[in-house]
Structures are given as C-alpha cells and as structure tokens.
Design a binder for these strands. Structure first.
Lengths: 107, 107
DNA sequence: GGCATCCGTAAGTCGTAGCTTACCGTTCGT
DNA sequence: ACGAACGGTAAGCTACGACTTACGGATGCC
C-alpha cells in the first residue's frame, strides 16, 4: 500500500476551490457531480481537483455504480494538523527567549 | 484582537518556500538576510514571501536596528490548526453514517 | 558627514496551475 | 444490445504567482 503522498497536503489546500471541496466533503461524502453542481466550475475541473486532493491523501473515493463517491480522509487532515501543532509548539519555545520584547512595527 | 487577514493562511502555506520559511522561523526568530542565506532564493524574494506570511497573520516582524527580525505568530498557526480540527471532527461524523454501508445505492 | 549594511518596492520575465471543451471508457436501465 | 448517465483524461489557452535585477529609503558606525 502506497501511503506516500505525491504532493504536500498544504499544496493541495493552497487552492480556495479545493478548500471549498474539503469543506463540502467534511459535511458528508459526495459524488463528483454533486460537487460540480454546488461549485462554480465545470465537472472536469472538480475531477482534477479531487485527483490532487486524493494524491495528497486528504480524500478517498469509492465506486458506487456509475457514480464515484468521495469523502474526507481524517488521517490526512490529522497529519496536517499535527504538523501545525509542531510549528506551534516550537514557536512557543522561541517565545521564551523574546517574551520581554514588545512588538513595534510601522507599515 | 485579530486583525482582518487579507489572505487565507492556507494560501500562504501553499508555497513550499513559504513553508520552509515557517519551519525555519519555528525554530527561532530570524532576520531577512539570515533566511535568504539559508534559502536558495534571493533576498527580495524572501522579503516578498514574508509579506504574504505577514498578511496571513502567520508571522510578525520587529525592527532591530537596520535589521528586521521575523518570528512565527502562534495565534495564526493555531487558527489554521483549529480549522483542520473542525474538518477532522466533521469527517468523523460523516464516518458514523456510512461506516456500515458498503454500498448505499437504493433500488 | 560619509559610507556601508540591511531591507522593501518596482518593473519585467517565465513557468505553471487552473479552467475550459472535446472525447472515451464504464456502468446501469429498458 | 442500445442509449443515457457519470466521470476520468487529453489538449489547449489564459492568468497569476514566483523569481530576478535595479533602485531607493532607513539605520548604524567611523
């Protein structure tokens, strides 16, 4: 089983349309046509986005007759969440050094 | 307290170079030149990336003489983490409905 | 003051991501 | 078996993002 993801999950979530798809699939599994019906893009475009999300391990698909139902992959989402968690923890450690320094900035 | 974010945080993390910057800043705050010295791109390119990350609320900057020190913003990172957490929870709820259904096609 | 350092912005080029239409394979219904 | 519905892929076009060099402003040191 190839648990390797061809593209980084954050690359996949970098596109707003794909985030919309993820948000839509978070509610419930959907077929490609259902997603295309909701989104303002064509069905092939949705299919291409789903391919990216699938390669990133963020969604899984299941054949159901002529339709293909996609649903969110909690494991893939959790992987990204954990990565942010790591950044968050390390940032707090960096805080320890500069906690006394006010943040001044001018735009 | 949170100011309005011009760009989505996931858009900012969609670029691998910006993820490298975030990972670098997670270890410790750095100046622009320090980041450019590590990364395989020019200093202006780093500066442009930092602008995007700043607009996304992922980093903050602080003037230190002629140098400008950037550091990770834990609040911004936490916001993205929480959003993934929401997706994760909703996906598990979706699981509850279809976990017992190998084929939900009705006849 | 004069100069060097550090950094942000402007202008321009180039690669590629995202969208479309067109086409083909697969599956179900009758 | 034939046609319709559903969806993945190919080819092509367009727009935008990422990078570069060049320049100017701000700060610090001598």
């Amino acid at each position: 089983m190839d648990a390797y993801q061809a593209v980084d999950g954050f690359d996949a979530l970098g596109d707003p349309t794909r985030r919309a798809i993820v948000a839509c699939l978070a509610e419930r599994p959907r077929a490609v046509g259902e997603l295309a019906d909701v989104l303002p893009i064509s069905r092939p475009a949705v299919s291409q986005h789903l391919k990216v999300l699938k390669d990133a391990g963020l969604v899984t698909d299941r054949a159901a007759g002529t339709r293909r139902v996609y649903r969110l992959n909690p494991a893939g989402v959790a992987a990204l969440r954990d990565q942010l968690e790591t950044f968050w923890n390390r940032a707090l450690d960096s805080y320890q050094d500069v906690v006394e320094q006010p943040n001044e900035e001018k735009s």
